[in-house]
Write a protein that binds this DNA or RNA. Sequence first.
DNA 1: CCGGACTCCTGTGCGC
DNA 2: TGCGCACAGGAGTCCG
Length: 283
Amino acid sequence: MPELPEIEHLRQSLEPVLIEAKVLSKRLYRRDMVRSHPPNSSRAPARLLAGLNITHLKRRGKQLAIITREGPTLCVGLGMSGQLRYMPGKERLAQSSHIHCIWSIQSKRGRGRLFFRDPRRFGGLWYFDSYEDLLAQRWSKLGPDALTIRSDQLSGALAGSRRPIKAALLEQSLLAGVGNIYADECLHRAGIHPRLLAGEASPEQIKKLCQHLRAILKKAIAAGGTTVSSYLDANGTAGTFALVLRVYGRGGQPCLVCGAKLQRIEVGQRTTVFCEYCQAPGG
DNA sequence: CCGGACTCCTGTGCGC
DNA sequence: TGCGCACAGGAGTCCG
């Protein structure tokens, strides 16, 4: 399940084959995976970057932008089960079901194809006439990127909120990039109860949370992301960060810090695992 | 405006 | 061994 580290690792793994590459053509198998397009450009979205030259890959939160020299920019969201895979030459994906779009690519490394596959279809493609339009129309709704967020920004995002802090961390408009895995992990490392009201977190707690959040995301990127069930990078490589998760998916098992049985509760309609001693309500 | 609930979707893994 | 079902969750949308 891709969160910020998985998308950032994906971005890095795609750069060598997509930067300065030309999109020769595209084949769209599911039109409804193109989620939106500006109202005044009815034809451009249909091209979906075909004939254009890619210059940049940018990420904000869990979203990836493919930016072209000509201007048009495609924002890719992977949702729960989405994959972007690059295959050289005419190689095919081992898993051939649920492929929604294939782009033929000409790069310095030769020809290849970029596959967008998403079994659950929670992801999607958002077309914009320019990167500036993407920033103004879509990414402007996202909070600061969790990888580089400062303590004062996190404090501002959480201030006044009456929601459980776990639910607030998942809210992309407050801060961008955190999903269920890293929300539980950073709360455990910071010793904060997931049901603590976000607006009632102390400055010390927020500072600690911020430090752990950035650190864990950075480490997860270096590890190639977390592969719980389906995440693979552009080359089909699984991440290794799942090996060092301390709470996610470990409900009922002993806390790796104190040995107590990890609790499994629901917060904000999401399964939440925490240690009632390391993350005591009082702090 | 805010927070919570619901919805979309299919692969996985469990129990019987 | 096979079937059926609960569960997983990112994010848009709706409602009180």
